[in-house]
Design a binder for these strands. Structure first.
Ligand SMILES: [Zn+2]
Ligand SMILES: [Zn+2]
Ligand SMILES: [Zn+2]
Ligand SMILES: [Zn+2]
Lengths: 162, 162
DNA sequence: GCCAATAGGTTATAGAGTAACATATCTGCC
DNA sequence: GGCAGATATGTTACTCTATAACCTATTGGC
């Protein structure tokens, strides 16, 4: 069974970017929130590839793209907005941010993270979510957010070593 | 079904501390590594309760306990040692560290974290681990480490609100 | 006792994130 | 259009977390 994630495959990534920005625009319109130039630009930079980017990396990228310098609070506010709207996720173990391929649908933050190439693959496994909720319930715990961060080697990078 | 975790129950916590330090001593002896005064003291401080503590909080506690000031690298080196030996876990979402109740047995880092009282409950659910490995395998991903951090309200804190 | 290895001390700095306040931009209303 | 309140961004300064680099002390085998 070969379910190689798109992030690890050769693919038309312009398509990923386009879809993500389109979905973001639609969501923000439907919610009546403002996807400003800055927010859109940060989202676009995050989607440059399937690897999580740190806030300060994004700052540098913004500085190069914009000529103008951007201070930390500016980029963090944009990131906060994108997080609130579910357009990106935060990868705690990396202090970094990555675009969500399915914003709008309520879901948790479950990732496979390759330590070699840096790709982060978002999982969509309702049964995993269910089992986590079940385990928490047995301890009388009320779940608000989940973060599953699995680190290791993606299919490409594991294959390269054999 | 009431499986209230020990961390959320009234319990003889001296017993928790004693067991943890005893287990640590035994493990380090059997592995031929040195559980120095500093490392033991840091581990003991971490075990003061069932709440993750930050490195700088530990530094302050050390300073008070020791009279001598301790600089960041000192405490981080002790933490690195304890992490390597599996005596503590790192809670990424909090940038904090917590004692492991079952060191020596190879296992992953799965926690329920209460946002109100700060308690972190370590899960021991082999089936959850298995399911995560299965999901990763389907993506061709080689798992090295897992970090599941579920945030919400523990049984005590959820109950207090009703 | 001596040497190599390991652990800890010290200083400085990098990296991540926020508080507080000023300015600009947008939106709805007159 | 012009105004007022709300929202968004700019700016400065700072806190918290973590590590690099180098030096000294301690340990354990020979
Ligand atoms: Zn893509
Ligand atoms: Zn990879
Ligand atoms: Zn206890
Ligand atoms: Zn609680």
């Amino acid at each position: 069974m070969d379910h190689t994630p798109i992030a690890c495959s050769h693919h038309d990534h312009d398509h990923c970017i386009h879809d993500a920005l389109e979905a973001a625009r639609n969501l923000c319109v439907s919610r009546g929130v403002r996807l400003t130039d800055l927010r859109l630009q940060v989202l676009e930079l995050i989607w440059q590839n399937h690897k999580p980017l740190g806030a300060y990396t994004l700052m540098e990228m913004l500085a190069k793209a914009n000529t103008r310098r951007v201070a930390p609070p500016t980029v963090y506010r944009a990131l906060d907005f994108l997080l609130e709207q579910g357009l990106i996720h935060r990868i705690n173990v990396l202090n970094a941010f990555i675009g969500c391929p399915s914003p709008g649908t309520k879901h948790q933050s479950h990732f496979l993270i390759c330590r070699t190439c840096g790709v982060a693959i978002e999982l969509d496994e309702p049964t995993l979510n269910q089992q986590i909720l079940q385990v928490a319930k047995e301890s009388g715990f009320t779940v608000e957010t989940q973060a599953l961060e699995v680190s290791g080697l993606c299919a490409n990078c594991a294959g390269a070593n054999t």
